[in-house]
């Protein structure tokens, strides 16, 4: 035996094979593959080609609803901070009792709201309301009242 190169000696002796020096029961590998093929569990998910179920309406809009709720929550929180900090915005006009009373008063409207109307505007409003007709003495008003513009009654 050449001890200086024992592995080469073993190779030449045919021992450099995977099965060298070992044995297995007769027909082991053929039987192993057959037995194993019957023992493998089914994998239906590998062959399942059905498409995923369509998503419901709620599933599709859910993200947007959550986002809208989140923004609404943030807005609400900011309003609360404003109110608690004394910077609350004014209530709407139609629910403000002081403003509602003022708007129902003719004196307030004539004195403060309509004060800058010209005679021409008043005549125009009257004409729209059907108050003016051919008998109205528009010519008697004079230029100092109706200005230089000439108002012509609609035909």
């Amino acid at each position: 035996m050449n001890k200086d190169n024992i592995l080469e000696t073993a190779r030449q002796a045919g021992l450099a094979r995977p099965d060298a020096g070992m044995k297995v029961p007769a027909g082991y590998f053929e039987q192993f593959a057959l037995d194993m093929s019957t023992r493998l569990p089914e994998r239906p998910e590998l062959t399942d080609t059905t498409e995923a179920a369509p998503r419901s309406l709620w599933e599709r809009v859910r993200t947007y609803v959550y986002m809208a709720a989140m923004f609404a929550g943030i807005w609400l929180m900011m309003q609360m901070v404003n109110i608690m900090g004394g910077h609350a915005s004014l209530a709407p006009m139609d629910s403000n009792p002081v403003l509602a009373e003022a708007l129902q008063s003719d004196d307030f409207m004539y004195d403060y709201v309509y004060s800058d109307m010209s005679t021409y505007d008043v005549l125009d409003e009257m004409d729209d309301a059907g108050i003016l007709d051919d008998t109205f003495p528009i010519a008697d008003l004079g230029e100092d009242i109706i200005g230089e513009s000439t108002y012509t009654l609609p035909q």
């Binding site: 000696t9 073993a10 070992m22």
Partner: peptide, 13 residues
């Protein structure tokens, strides 16, 4: 008993 090699094979193993 599953080892059926000669002395060289056994020693190598």
């Amino acid at each position: 008993p599953d080892f059926d090699g000669n002395e060289l094979a056994r020693k190598l193993q």
